[in-house]
Design a protein around this nucleic acid. Structure first.
Lengths: 216, 216
DNA sequence: TAAACCCGTTACTAGCGGTAACAACAGTCT
DNA sequence: AGACTGTTGTTACCGCTAGTAACGGGTTTA
């Protein structure tokens, strides 16, 4: 009659094992970047490859599991900033700053999340499968932000559609600017945040033309 | 004394060869996606691997050469839209539409440009080298747009810095929204263009809160 | 005690990017 | 003419990767 108790113990043991493996993978990715090999991860965990494959199926599975952890963590931090009880502009700036601080603190993790080095499927589907390849993190963030906007901002008719578009657009803006900024560090984080918020606040439309060109 | 004439003939022959190789590579990438192998490209061109390596150094070199062609083409199309003699808003919409039409017409090419499958260097530099990895196309577009904005829009002090930030931010917005749209096709291109332009025109700041939440 | 079930190993495959070594043909110099 | 040089192409290999088959030993179940 030990069957249920034994099974449960084994299940929790497997889960703990899985966490250990993920932590080892985390260390290796942090050290070697996204192109960390399965051999290296297995070695770091003190075991050999086939065990990794039994737990995660293939490299894509491991990477997906790893990405989910970080994505969830970042997402919850962003949600907190997004839900703060303050003015809209202040909240937008706080969210931008949270994101930028996160990628600034752990650039290797960020890089891994954005470029999962071509995930899983060798996909025999040879059709136009563009869309799945881009970093899942950006998609999730975009969808999430779209929902928040749709819930809280009055955009008139077609607001659902427009909110989603804006969600993905704003996330993309944040990501691209952050990626560029992280490379060159041409200014402080505060200035970057303020400039992006200014952009979202319509300063592009309000600004006047400079003399010399035909305007922009 | 035939040395100069002979050398020149050989040089032009090599250039023609290079173009042929690039066209073959183009066909393979269009068929197999960005993970096309050097073997496959060589086979398509009717030759074997070492020739490819003599011409392009390594896989990154070939991909860079390939990307440059498409990037230049897209960039000149965008510049044309950006330089049209019309209102600023109209020009922004035309630019967005040009980009979206391009990625819609040749999604495989677009996918290759955005995800060059980890370019060139096995980079022994193990430092935090985030920044070089992201698709060069986006960087180039961002810098280009930043220059255009700096030249033509009056942004007050610090306008250089802010223009660059905006350039990268707007390009990222365009890219992320386009990538998402290309996958799900949730609306027409016109609607997407209009929504993004609205976002840039400050509708987020102007819009009122919806009842129920604490606003956004 | 015997069956079932995991955890873990070694040893392998197929394919990748990249290279060394060599063959053959061109045009050039003496 | 004959030796020299450079380019074009080959075959055969290296070291690496992702992924798998097959087997051994330990623990739980019957």
């Amino acid at each position: 009659m030990e069957t249920t108790r034994g099974a449960e113990r084994q299940r929790t043991a497997a889960e703990r094992r899985r966490r250990e493996l993920l932590e080892a993978a985390d260390r290796v990715v942090l050290r070697d970047g996204p192109q960390a090999s399965m051999n290296a991860i297995a070695a770091e965990a003190g075991i050999t490859k086939p065990i990794l494959y039994r737990h995660f199926g293939d490299k894509g599975g491991l990477y997906r599991a790893l990405a989910k952890r970080h994505t969830d963590a970042l997402l919850s931090a962003l949600r907190a900033a997004l839900d703060a009880p303050s003015e809209r502009r202040e909240r937008v700036e706080a969210t931008l700053d949270t994101y930028l601080a996160a990628i600034e603190a752990r650039p290797q993790v960020y890089r891994f999340l954005m470029h999962p080095s071509d995930d899983a499927a060798p996909s025999p589907e040879q059709g136009f499968d563009v869309g799945r390849h881009s970093a899942p993190l950006l998609r999730r963030l975009g969808e999430e932000l779209g929902k928040v906007i749709a819930e809280r901002v009055d955009l008139g008719p077609d607001s659902q559609q427009m909110a989603r578009i804006w969600g993905h657009g704003i996330v993309g803006m944040m990501h691209a600017a952050g990626d560029w900024w992280l490379g060159d560090r041409p200014c402080s984080r505060e200035q970057l945040v303020r400039s992006l918020a200014d952009l979202l606040w319509g300063r592009l439309a309000e600004a006047g033309d400079l003399p010399g060109g035909q305007g922009f």
